[in-house]
Amino acid sequence: MLNRQQQFGKSSERLAVDYLKRRGYRILETNYRTPQGEIDIIAQEKGTIVFVEVKARSSRRFGSPKAAVTPAKQRKISMVALMYLKACDRIDARARFDVVAIDTAPGSPHIEVVKDAFNLAYG
């Protein structure tokens, strides 16, 4: 059984998937996991593979959702993205990293897609 925080995360990811679909993204994978980490959503938009990190906040107490995608998180997502591209034999594909920031405080959610939010991160 999922705790409240996990339920919030799952519902936020569902919101993000629906939002991206309405904007023309084709969802390829959700919750892609490897021993090294997870990517929330892998999609395709106009021939580009898009690795999407979803960050949601119900209050501003811990900062904005966009600020939660730290350099360490970017490195982990980059590593998993490279593993995905290699596993699918698409290592030469155009790819980018987007962040879907969801702010639910107060009232109805505000959703923002930050396209090309960060570059492939090493080290």
Rank of each mutant, 00 (worst) to 15 (best):
Y19S: 04
L85P: 00
R26P: 00
S78V: 01
K115S: 15
D116K: 12
S58E: 06
A68S: 15
D18I: 09
G9P: 01
P35L: 04
R4I: 10
S11P: 00
N119T: 09
M1K: 09
R14P: 01
D92V: 00
I39H: 03
S11T: 07
Y122W: 13
D116R: 15
A93C: 08
I49S: 00
I42G: 08
E38W: 03
R4F: 07
R4P: 06
N31P: 04
F118R: 01
Q36M: 14
N31L: 10
I91S: 12
V52P: 05
D40C: 03
D116N: 15
V17T: 13
H110V: 14
R57W: 01
T104H: 08
D92M: 05
Y122M: 14
A68C: 12
Q7W: 06
D116I: 08
S64H: 10
D116L: 03
E29R: 12
S108V: 06
A101V: 03
G63M: 09
R60I: 13
Q7K: 07
P35I: 02
K73E: 09
R14D: 13
D98Y: 04
E38V: 06
S78R: 05
A101E: 12
I102T: 09
G123F: 12
K66C: 02
A101G: 11
E53T: 14
Q74R: 14
G63S: 05
V114I: 13
D103K: 13
R4V: 05
T70D: 12
F97P: 00
L2I: 06
V100G: 07
G107Q: 11
Q5P: 03
V100P: 07
S12D: 01
I41C: 10
D40R: 00
V69D: 03
V69E: 09
Q7L: 15
L2R: 12
K86V: 07
Q74S: 04
L120S: 00
A117V: 10
V114R: 04
V114W: 07
D92H: 09
K21D: 11
K115G: 12
A117R: 02
S11K: 06
I77R: 02
M79R: 14
Y25Q: 00
R94N: 14
T48K: 13
P109H: 06
R14C: 02
F118Y: 04
E13C: 10
I91L: 14
L85T: 00
E112Q: 11
M1N: 11
A68M: 13
G63T: 12
S58T: 02
E53G: 06
D98F: 02
A43C: 08
E38M: 06
V52N: 02
S64L: 14
R4E: 15
Q6G: 07
K73D: 14
D18A: 14
V100L: 07
V99A: 00
K21W: 00
Y25N: 01
R94E: 15
K76G: 04
D40Q: 02
P106V: 10
P109S: 15
C88N: 13
A121S: 10
A121E: 09
E45A: 06
Q6N: 15
P35F: 03
V80Y: 01
K55Y: 03
L20V: 02
I111C: 08
P109R: 08
L2Y: 15
R23Q: 15
A105C: 02
A81D: 01
A121M: 06
P106N: 12
G123Y: 06
F97G: 00
Y32T: 13
T70N: 07
E112C: 02
D103H: 08
Q36T: 08
E38P: 02
A87D: 14
K10Y: 15
I77S: 01
R94V: 07
